[in-house]
């Protein structure tokens, strides 16, 4: 395999794995505060799934020549990135619904396109991951729909969460890029541009948000009747750049938690790695 391709796939999959690993931290904060046992079980299972996705993806990346330990070290040192949406705080139970529904939906739009990635081990892994993510979206949508059917305070809570998450959601797929100059598309590591993914996300999910009587904080948001293209206010790309370089509102806390966790579990890795010598 050409070296540029190997490095391209590795970089792409590593960023994806990092995002799955860091992505559980905002939701993890709500496990102990879940309103019912069933919600607690569902949220725990989701967190377990996302860590499992990180494991599967680090596994794909490892075979491309970078060790898992090195990938974690680079993430903790701020040398590699994770998705913008996981740098923000969670403020209420409604955040859990909005994250599981809409953040996962925005992610799955991208991930479904990756099931056709030219790197077959990644494509096969994405088929398994998409199947699990579809459960998360149902869980999140169920949380949101339950709350909008509740008290005014619950409705307000969902609307407030949606207002806060909309900016990061619109930034999530990244600025428009030139298809001809995108190396990941050239190598067919991914199939769709950021704008294609954003349009797909808006087409499916904006009507479902409006259906619930919720509003989205963008006066420009509308679908052109003629060509079906969604128009929206330009997302804050400066915010995106600031956040993904670990200057987001929770970037440092989340990384600090992971560093602490990495140090606390060193003894487990030592035993696992030592098991081979002991068994021999």
């Amino acid at each position: 395999m050409p070296d540029e391709y190997r490095q391209g796939v590795l970089r792409f999959v590593e960023m994806h794995a990092n995002s799955e690993l860091m992505g559980v931290l905002p939701e993890r904060e709500w496990i102990l505060r879940a309103p019912t046992l069933r919600r607690k079980l569902a949220l725990t299972a989701k967190v377990q799934d996302e860590v499992g996705h990180a494991q599967l993806l680090y596994r794909v990346a490892e075979d491309l020549g970078k060790s898992r330990g090195q990938m974690i070290e680079d993430l903790l040192a701020g040398k590699t990135k994770f998705h913008n949406v996981f740098h923000y705080p969670t403020r209420s139970w409604a955040d859990v619904g909005v994250i599981a529904w809409l953040v996962d939906a925005a992610a799955i739009v991208a991930q479904q396109a990756l099931r056709d990635s030219s790197y077959a081990p990644y494509a096969r892994t994405m088929r398994k991951i998409c199947w699990e993510e579809s459960v998360h979206i149902m869980h999140g949508r169920d949380v949101v729909v339950t709350m909008v059917n509740g008290t005014q305070a619950q409705r307000d809570m969902v609307q407030e969460a949606l207002d806060r998450w909309w900016g990061p959601l619109m930034q999530m797929h990244g600025p428009r890029s030139d298809r001809a100059r995108d190396r990941d598309i050239y190598w067919r590591i991914k199939a769709k541009t950021s704008e294609e993914l954003r349009q797909e996300f808006l087409s499916i999910y904006v009507p479902r948000v409006w259906e619930l009587g919720l509003t989205l904080p963008d006066p420009e948001l509308r679908r052109d009747r003629e060509d079906g293209v969604w128009h929206y206010s330009e997302p804050d790309w400066q915010e995106l750049r600031t956040v993904v370089t670990n200057h987001g509102p929770r970037s440092q806390e989340r990384l600090a938690f992971r560093r602490e966790n990495w140090a606390d579990t060193a003894w487990v890795r030592a035993i696992v790695l030592g098991a081979r010598g002991a068994a021999a």
């Binding site: 490892e62 020549g65 060790s67 330990g69 890795r269 790695l273 081979r276």
Partner: peptide
């Protein structure tokens, strides 16, 4: 093929 801890772990 993996470097580092790959030397102690195997696929």
């Amino acid at each position: 093929e993996s470097a580092g801890d790959g030397a102690l772990l195997e696929p």
